[in-house]
Design a protein around this nucleic acid. Structure first.
Lengths: 254, 254
DNA sequence: TAGTGGTCTAGACCACTGC
DNA sequence: CAGTGGTCTAGACCACTAA
């Protein structure tokens, strides 16, 4: 239903055809695409143009390129993350649970626990001063040994008391119990979702191009009006679907 | 903290410098960047390479290009869309309300109301047969006359009775009242969020490159176990931030 | 018309990988 | 080493917009 009969650029047509060939199963996940010189001959185009076509498919996450090796059809394990509201433990099922529901084997690797000055975005979310110390916990998550998620949580030192609150590695439920025991009973959650380009570290861990995007889900837990914890999750946008579920007003028992 | 001392491509460096110049306010929102031949001279590069740099900035949403006119620094009206749970009317404030909160002037244009066979994705969400008729309503939304959102809602004809349910154009609150009057009292909502590339129509209306992404938020309203309506919202991912807020279990009054 | 951005070429050179 | 992808050039032509 386009108004103008837009002539499609040839490098886009090539991308379309490759996309379609992948969809048809002509190239299967893990397969290597023909080399760029090959494709150039095949489509009567220059390698430069073919390179552009491949770049499109990379940005879509449909193809993964290894420099000096080749371009491979990407396995895209789409995972669904659901927040059911209300629900114990912050409203969400755990990462491990979600993974197993998707038929994948979860693994979480604790990268670091330390106390650091709060980055600006975190300070703002927690309503504390920049560089106020926060207990920081970083995890790398894998689904069947493929990196799929990156999570960092921050708790103001004034709330946490010390790093012990994060040791041994505890899930949200355990953490909120410990916070409650310290007098910070969590009453409310806020999640903000944003799409953005990955920074260098994220791109490296998640194996993304700069052209691809990530979803950042930032959750803040409040005890009354006081923000006591924030968790920042980063997902490759192509591999995830987020879901939120809640009862209609006046129908809270759902 | 990159391990390898990656030599950055020159077209990326140019993009970095332009990005930085925009951040510094050297080019302000709405300003036109220098032409590609200009930039090529300035950076000692070919126009082809400069074009790549601009393409990067486009994909980031930092720059908007008008063919035959120039490249302009994008006004990024980051708009926040919040679902507060529970809350009357489906949990969300209206589009108009959100826009005014962001200091923008909202406008909604009703594009069409008709009865059509359900597209596959819609049929699945509504648990009806493909090609079962659904009352379909499409709206284009503008913020201060810039296109920012596209919404299509679907109601099975068996639920709606007829197209009248969508006339005159009604917001969600009015619609759910009418559905309740027809015996379909909405008790539960589900929203699924997905990042994907825009299709041609979406790209045309929202003025996006194929390299950019949109967020698709698909809401389904349930009356008991029966899906009675679904709305599919499409946003340019750069311009929006989604938020969900809910009380912790045992603290429902928030 | 002149100026803008978009595409494409033919060829070159480089960086990376695996043999 | 040969084969892969990534970048860049110099130049060309096209499409679109505004005057």
């Amino acid at each position: 239903m386009t108004v103008v009969d837009a002539p499609r650029a040839r490098y886009r047509q090539v991308a379309d055809e490759l996309r379609e060939a992948i969809r048809r199963g002509e190239y299967r996940p893990g397969d290597m695409l023909p080399s760029q010189p090959d494709l150039a001959r095949r489509y009567g185009l220059n390698q430069t143009s073919i390179n552009r076509s491949i770049a499109l498919l990379r940005a879509e996450g449909l193809v993964r390129v290894e420099h000096g090796v080749g371009a491979f059809v990407q396995v895209v394990p789409t995972v669904k993350r659901t927040r059911r509201v209300p629900r114990p433990g912050g409203g969400g099922s755990s990462f491990a649970e979600e993974m197993r529901n998707a038929g994948l084997t979860p693994r979480t690797q604790l990268v670091s626990v330390d106390t650091r000055p709060a980055p600006p975005a975190v300070a703002e979310r927690l309503s504390i001063g920049e560089d106020d110390p926060v207990v920081t916990r970083t995890r790398h998550m894998f689904a069947s040994e493929r990196p799929v998620q990156l999570a960092t949580s921050y708790i103001p030192i004034a709330v946490a008391g010390g790093e012990d609150i994060a040791h041994p590695d505890v899930g949200p439920t355990g953490l909120y119990k410990r916070l409650a025991a310290r007098g910070f009973k969590v009453t409310r959650f806020l999640e903000e979702i944003e799409a953005r380009r990955p920074d260098d570290d994220e791109a490296a861990f998640l194996n993304l191009t700069e052209a691809q995007q990530v979803l950042e889900v930032a959750r803040v837990a409040y005890a009354g009006d006081r923000a006591v914890e924030t968790v920042i999750n980063v997902f490759p946008s192509q591999q995830w679907r987020l879901a939120y579920e809640w009862p209609a007003p006046g129908d809270e028992q759902a």
